[in-house]
């Protein structure tokens, strides 16, 4: 199976409370670039779908990663190559000339050229929190979608996978879908749990370590030699006009610091007589 995984770098999500507003722009100066966590999960999922969990050095199929941005995003792509992805594509463009819709339309052109069986993406990027690109690509391609995947099992014969059974994490439970390939799947947090992904190569009962894999030093060196090509946004999308226009930003009012109560009795009294919520 050939899988295309779009990747985005985001300003350090664990320090998102340090963003500042400068004029009409949001400033993330001082925040380190990190891979979007959901995209890292998508890469891990792609690797698990294209290997026997007991012999992860041998890739069965191909994992291609793609990112949009200036030269510096190549670091994000190389990191994915180091964990096991085979090839990378960087679409040269600056962030201010992008929105989710343009990314999806450009990805459509890449998909038409690369012809993957599966586009696997994170359910949302934790900077804009839009949760849209997977669904947009699916519609633009006319492919079925399975969003917010908490587990995936591939069906068919090795090298001839035909469908995925996906458990989607939704409000109030789980929706189970079977999508026939080619399809678009977006992944949720629990996809990197030890038994969430089952490929046709991996024995039943196999357990991965929890979370995403780390690259060994040798693999980081080897990743520098893996193919990474550059594309131009203009050749991928005829129309580069954006559909969303950001006018300005503001920081939310900080919550007033509360009080520490000395015991349960004081808590109950205050909730009843002061906050009046009980």
């Amino acid at each position: 199976m050939k899988i295309l995984v779009p990747l985005k770098r985001v300003a350090d999500p664990d320090n998102a409370n340090k963003v500042k507003v400068a004029g009409t722009k949001l400033e993330t100066t001082g925040l380190e670039w990190k891979p979007n966590p959901f995209d890292e999960y998508a890469v891990e999922t792609a690797l698990r779908l294209t290997e026997n969990g007991a012999a992860t050095k041998q890739r069965q199929g191909e994992v291609v990663v793609v990112s949009f941005g200036p030269k510096e995003v190549e670091a994000t792509l190389r990191a994915a190559l180091a964990t096991g992805a085979d090839r990378a594509i960087r679409v040269d463009v600056t962030d201010d000339k992008l929105d989710g819709d343009l990314v999806a339309r450009a990805l459509k052109a890449i998909v038409e050229k690369e012809k993957p069986d599966l586009v696997l993406c994170g359910k949302q990027a934790v900077d804009g929190d839009s949760n849209q690109v997977g669904q947009l690509i699916a519609e633009y391609l006319g492919w079925p979608q399975a969003t917010f995947a908490g587990s995936i099992k591939s069906e068919g014969a090795p090298g001839k996978e035909t469908a995925l059974v996906v458990h989607r994490e939704v409000d109030g439970g789980t929706i189970n879908l079977k999508v026939t390939l080619p399809a678009v799947v977006s992944v949720d947090l629990r996809i990197v749990a030890p038994t969430s992904v089952k490929s046709v190569y991996t024995a039943d009962g196999f357990k991965y370590p929890d979370g995403v894999r780390f690259a060994a030093l040798m693999a980081i060196m080897a990743a520098k030699k893996k193919p990474l090509v550059e594309e131009k946004i203009e050749t991928l999308a005829a129309d580069t006009a954006l559909k969303i226009e950001y006018l300005g930003f503001e920081l939310p009012a900080a919550r007033k610091a509360g009080v520490k109560v000395k015991d349960v009795a004081e808590l109950v009294t205050r909730l009843k007589s002061e906050a009046k919520v009980l």
């Binding site: 949001l26 559909k243 930003f249």
Partner: peptide, 20 residues
């Protein structure tokens, strides 16, 4: 219509417009 939406885990709010 001008929309307000949270970004960066609600650590900032954007105002935005759709061009369509």
């Amino acid at each position: 219509l001008v929309y307000r939406r949270p970004v960066y885990a609600g650590n900032a709010y954007a105002s935005c417009r759709l061009t369509t």
